[in-house]
Design a binder for these strands. Structure first.
Lengths: 341, 341
DNA sequence: CTGAAAGCGCTAACAT
DNA sequence: ATGTTAGCGCTTTCAG
């Protein structure tokens, strides 16, 4: 692999001159003639600057770190996409650390070790934490290390640099959809997590329900992990309710959870949407192919991911960490799991 | 951020001694006393070795590159998982480059540029190409750069270092399942790609069908991209066939394609499985929740991903690039989209 | 307009 | 048992 020195030798100039030319140093002042010689030599040797050496010198790696719970969650792939797209557009590479894989591989301790290694060993210029349930404590620790940090789809008290969608608005339009359909007995399957996002979604639900003049019964409000099993488990108690005590519609705060809810309801012997309408937070292409096709609230998740990168890039350049709410309006995608009453 | 020098100063030893101790240099020969002093100093300063400096010196980054078409394809998430898990277990980080994001961001040229940068600039020790439809030409180029390289779920003539599942066997058991159910008119929705994998799956289909004494009509064999739209489009011509000319069962060579096929068939006014049985190559949790629940062939994709990492690690250590077929047996997961005739 | 020199933080061969 | 030295490949003053 050719180095700067090799190019310099071939072009018969000093390495520093080659560096200047190849970086397009603003203090150009290089004679076109030498410039051409250098370019030619560089091409001939297929020269590529060594990222490690450059990074060591400049303290910039043009690489971003991403901590994510799982690459598999369909509710999350849009965010990852947005991150990848924006990173690629900015010429940045991204190191992805999947928490689930870490746990599979080695246990909690190693996970923290790997995170801390990632942010401390100079490998990345900044970090995107798209891990809603990562301990606030750990997040605070990461933030204190002083590395540029952006939280996605979550906020942590005292930590700046975050981007979220308008979770409250998303919950609200879900409820408005159900109310518009004539439902007055509306339940909620929330996220079983003490996170800011969980609270915002639930708050949006409560506010919208209240605004419609409704008071949900407390046993219509349950929660579970945003997984198939979580949704299924969470809805069990509702399915067992006496028909006269049951809600007629459920808003589920996660996509995967909603699919679990669908399954739980079916196993409980009820029909969706005839006996229970279901609407989910977050959309996905596959929602149209479920049984029944799932009505969802589509959130601007791609944008959220992309903006996270932009915010991080700002922070890396020394600007203040901003907290952003994506203002793009969420939208109900009506499919077969909700109907009028 | 503390450096080796800082630790050395605090412990009142030479940096090289600190390095030895902290790396656990086999040529230990360090007095327990100084050793303790060094460890204490390192802890006190929260010392972390700089990965760039170390990599520059040792020519090892403990980082792997992964080129993947899209993180979104549910048929592929298991592989990514396997890769992440094995990488984490081996203490390696992984840089993920998503081709789709690259295209969204900038166009073909940039993609090649980014790949080549990734493999040439010393950032990663080796590369996993999990991109079935990446040009053979490009793959050959990458391989020629001399960087350790492992292909996943694909092979390229002349390039060594690959891991695939037993695609032929997967196709075969799909067909055996259908034949066992009494089907004798079996069609195939293949991958619209000139790839080794596409050929292996189709070959498995043809062989198994032949072994059952059947001869599929040529208009029962179609192909499309492994996407919803691809599957839907591919099956259109079959749906239009006169009932007496139609196959009674279809084997679809991709999961996403099969979901598209389901939709295409429904739109064509046919019932699955009553008028047409469908079985898909590759399984996913969500297949159980589709309409109808999709019968699939479960392939050892997690293993494939994990073994890719192991192979790559071998190659990085200087061993020969091996070509591996995961021998774990595929398995039919019977759900609602296939039935007896 | 170009070269010389220093140094980013680390490791490894060599010396003592 | 520890220190000295050189250098990985690059960028960036500073000279000239």
């Amino acid at each position: 692999m050719a180095t700067l020195k090799d190019v310099a030798r071939l072009a018969e100039v000093d390495p520093s001159t080659v560096s200047r030319v190849l970086r397009g140093d603003p203090v150009q002042a290089v004679r076109p003639e030498t410039r051409d010689r250098i370019l030619a030599a560089s091409q001939r040797l297929h020269y590529r600057p060594n990222a490690l050496a450059r990074g060591l010198r400049t303290r910039r790696t043009d690489t971003l770190g991403l901590i994510i719970p799982s690459l598999e969650n369909v509710g999350f792939s849009e965010v990852t996409h947005g991150i990848q797209a924006a990173a690629a557009a900015a010429g940045r590479l991204v190191v992805v650390v999947e928490a689930e894989a870490l746990e599979r591989a080695g246990g909690e301790g190693d996970a923290e070790e790997l995170y801390s290694r990632l942010i401390t060993d100079g490998r990345v210029d900044g970090l995107i934490v798209a891990f809603a349930t990562l301990d606030d404590h750990l997040v605070t620790q990461l933030a204190e290390r002083g590395i540029p940090l952006v939280l996605v789809n979550r906020r942590t008290a005292g930590v700046h640099g975050s981007v979220v969608v308008d979770d409250e608005r998303g919950s609200a339009i879900a409820i408005e959809h159900l109310v518009g359909l004539g439902h007055r007995r509306i339940g909620y399957v929330g996220l079983a997590a003490e996170t800011d996002t969980a609270r915002r979604r639930e708050h949006g639900f409560r506010t919208a329900v209240g605004a419609a003049g409704l008071t949900p019964r407390s046993d219509w409000i349950v929660s579970g992990a945003p997984t198939l099993a979580g949704g299924k488990g969470a809805v069990a108690s509702i399915v067992r309710l006496d028909p006269s005590d049951r809600p007629t519609a459920l808003f589920v705060a996660s996509l995967l959870g909603a699919i679990g809810v669908l399954a739980g309801i079916r196993e409980g012997g009820l029909q969706v949407p005839d006996e229970m309408s279901i609407i989910a937070f977050n959309d996905h292409e596959l929602a149209a192919h479920l049984d029944p096709p799932l009505t969802t609230v589509r959130m601007p998740n791609f944008r959220m991911g992309a903006e996270a990168v932009n915010l991080l890039l700002e922070a890396i350049e020394g600007q203040d960490h901003r907290d952003l709410v994506i203002d793009e309006a969420p939208e109900v995608i009506m499919r077969g799991s909700t109907r009028g009453i």
